[in-house]
Design a protein around this nucleic acid. Structure first.
Lengths: 231, 231
DNA sequence: TGCGGTGCTTACAGATTTGTCAATGCGCTG
DNA sequence: CAGCGCATTGACAAATCTGTAAGCACCGCA
């Protein structure tokens, strides 16, 4: 609705440098946190491409269509902007993970294959893997994310316990489930980060250009791991 | 005043100058090449910490104890330096992988467990995972590395074929072996990149602070995958 | 002995980047 | 309507970074 107001045409004379002639142009004033949000959105896209250290105030400002001091006005400093962008992206990541973990039918997740496939896709498409890699490389990792993973591992383990006890099998220790979840996460991140390069450089690229077959194979193995009872 | 970003032609120097991602013109004057090597070594260490885009000529020069124009003298441009450093690091990576794949006894690798363990350690200690992550994020991935992985996968597959046929079992297609190798690589990279953060944020950190248990568990599962015959 | 090339330095130029400042228009409120 | 706060801008400053120019010391060689 209020995407961009009209800009007054004013790209004429190359104003000569005089300290006494600052005629600031009149633009439409945004209200609420609307501009803040637009900035964060653009900066979030750039974050995935260039990383936290590569973010440039002027570049973001140009893309949004504002002047760069406005970013400083809203976020105090470059570090403030980066912090806000990273936080926002992490929230988006978390939301995507949760929504991919929740079965579309709303019921407790019963089909592990579909669950894994959805999670894979969420990570792959949204650039979340790149985000986590940037943060890890830049030393900005948040312990926060780890605890969420712990919750997921716990959830998986209770599912697994129910399944195995119903079948009368011995249940492996929780550590085993945590390991499976960790392996799944590594595979998911690795596939998003290096899958393309690996496939293009190996014979796999011919039969499996998109990695679909690999992902199916992997899903099968992960499910098999979860279904294996303790010895 | 820069109306349009035109480059002024230099009159004397035959050195052409580009600003973005040119394949560098390396004028290797390498007489002794000793200083060159020292620069590359320091820059290689920094590459792992700040990535290709984070490398700063002045910082490297200060660390080496020389003036920064010397780096330009040896490598022509910043891009030339980055190119040389990345190439050197990739060679080091390749050498480390090969040496970890070769059994210490010099014999053909027969013990998959030890092989996997050694490869894990090589990646973990040397920062090779970070290198590959930086390159991937910076869009500097080399298809070269993929082909090496193809060789490894082929080697693993022949080992596997020998083992399974000797046991009279049916051998899975080569694709299956390639998938196992890919999964191993992803796990190895993921562990080096995110293992610490994940362990610190989950209950795993208590029982397995260094990830040793996870790596042993994983090795067991990978070996089991390779030993499983085709149905 | 002089000469040219090599390795390296200082000084500087030009571009880019973050951050500050003063000005300005607009909405809201007293 | 006056006044105040806020969003926003252009101009500028200071730091930093890559790259250029010129100069100096040394060494092998004709």
């Amino acid at each position: 609705m209020e995407l961009m107001g009209k800009k007054i045409e004013k790209k004429r004379a190359p104003v000569r440098r005089l300290k006494t002639t600052p005629p600031p142009s009149v633009r439409d004033v945004g209200r609420g946190g609307e501009m803040r949000e637009r900035i964060l959105e653009v900066a979030g896209r750039m974050l995935n491409q260039v990383g936290p250290d590569g973010l440039r105030l002027q570049e973001i400002a140009k893309e949004v269509g504002v002047s760069h001091p406005l970013l400083l006005h809203h976020f105090g400093s470059r570090a403030g902007l980066v912090h806000a962008v990273v936080e926002r992206s992490m929230h988006a990541l978390e939301a995507d993970i949760l929504s991919s973990l929740a079965s579309p039918t709303g019921e407790p997740p019963s089909d592990p294959t579909a669950l894994i496939e959805r999670t894979f896709r969420a990570f792959h498409d949204q650039g979340h893997a790149r985000l986590l890699a940037w943060l890890s490389l830049s030393g900005m990792s948040q312990k926060d994310s780890g605890s969420k993973l712990g919750d997921i591992a716990a959830m998986i383990h209770t599912m697994r316990t129910n399944e195995l006890t119903a079948r009368g099998s011995k249940v492996p220790p929780p550590e085993d489930s945590a390991f499976v979840v960790t392996l799944a996460l590594f595979a998911l991140l690795g596939d998003a980060m290096w899958g393309r390069v690996i496939r293009e450089g190996t014979a796999m690229g011919k039969q499996d250009p998109t990695g679909e077959r690999f992902r199916q194979w992997l899903t099968g193995k992960l499910v098999a791991l979860l279904e294996t009872p303790a010895p």
